[in-house]
Design a protein around this nucleic acid. Structure first.
Length: 60
DNA sequence: GTAATTCG
DNA sequence: CGAATTAC
């Protein structure tokens, strides 16, 4: 499944804030804790992959 | 450290 | 197989 909804994230490769759709989103949570949603993004500038938190209410 | 995911 | 991601 490819995500469509863009998310505002800081691109660590450029330092710029970009609005892009994550290629994949999943929940990263230890047992007994709430955890966070993580998205896998590809920088439009550099083409490098990076992971960043996505809002808890984000739907792919 | 833990959780899942996947790129390098 | 390790890094990196968040926050508890």
């Amino acid at each position: 499944m490819v995500c469509k909804t863009p998310v505002k994230v800081k691109d660590p490769t450029t330092g710029k804030e970009v609005e892009i759709a994550p290629e994949k989103v999943w929940v990263l949570a230890p047992k007994g804790r709430k955890g966070v949603k993580i998205g896998l993004f590809k920088s439009p500038e550099t083409g490098k992959y990076f992971r960043a938190k996505v809002p808890d209410d984000y739907v792919c």
